[in-house]
Simulated scan of single mutants.
Amino acid sequence: MPFIEIASMHSPGLNLRQEDFNVAIIENHKRKSCNQIFDNFFNGEDGTIIHIGDPDLRNDKNNVCFASEIIDWDFEPVDIIYFPEIDDDFETCTGGENQQFKFKFLSRYKRDIDRLLRVALRKSPIKKGYILSDYQFGPSIPQIEIISRISDFWSRHDQEGLMYNTVYELYGS
């Protein structure tokens, strides 16, 4: 299950209204990410994180981190997903990662994602934000990329897709 989040750095809040978006959103002012691979990424920084979820979770704020319905699964199709093997003590988990690498958002949700990115950058006092993903079947080594502008982010998205388990750093003007 992929997770998608947007962070607005040093922002005390974005004052988003769920009824303005087709995707589910939760605004979190405590910098708590659903993305376990990036737990330490925000250490020492404050801001607001927007958890983006499936449209059918708009009224279920306990599971909003699940974003599988906003992903275009036909962009990089995989016939069979192999689940990780977990030992009897639940201490070791092997396999699972490195099965899918790139993704795109479904076109009907791009407008919502774009609006959320723009609000996040506009409300950041330092005009800095991130969009990040976490997917257990994605690359095993997380990446950080500086893209700078939202228009460049969407060009990348449209032309070659985005990488799972990647933080994209963006700046507003």
Rank of each mutant, 00 (worst) to 15 (best):
N62Q: 12
D114T: 02
P55K: 05
L106P: 00
T48I: 06
L117S: 07
G53W: 01
I49T: 09
I81C: 04
C65P: 04
R111E: 02
S107N: 07
E45A: 12
N62I: 06
R111S: 12
T94G: 05
I71N: 12
G95K: 00
T92F: 15
D72L: 05
I49A: 01
Y82R: 14
S68Q: 11
P55M: 02
K104W: 07
G95H: 00
D54Q: 14
F66V: 10
D72A: 10
R115A: 09
C93E: 15
C93P: 06
E97C: 11
I52Y: 02
R58Q: 01
K110G: 03
K104Q: 05
N35M: 15
N62P: 08
Q36M: 14
E45G: 08
F66M: 06
E45D: 13
D112Y: 02
N98F: 08
I71T: 06
Y109W: 11
E97H: 15
D56S: 13
R118D: 13
S68K: 08
R58L: 11
N59L: 15
G47E: 04
H51Y: 07
A120D: 08
C65H: 13
E85Y: 03
D114I: 10
R115K: 02
I70V: 06
D74M: 11
I71K: 10
E45C: 12
H51K: 08
N43P: 03
P77F: 08
L117M: 05
R58N: 07
N62C: 05
K61R: 05
S68H: 15
H51G: 12
V64D: 00
R118E: 10
R111T: 06
S107C: 05
N59T: 04
E76Q: 02
F101L: 14
K123E: 03
F103P: 11
W73L: 07
I50V: 05
K102D: 06
G95Y: 09
D79S: 12
D87I: 10
N59Q: 10
D79C: 03
D87E: 02
F101Y: 09
Q100F: 03
D54P: 04
D54R: 04
S68W: 11
N35W: 02
W73F: 15
I86W: 05
F42L: 11
D88I: 14
P84Y: 01
N43A: 15
W73E: 03
P77T: 08
E97R: 11
S107D: 00
F42G: 04
G44C: 12
C65M: 13
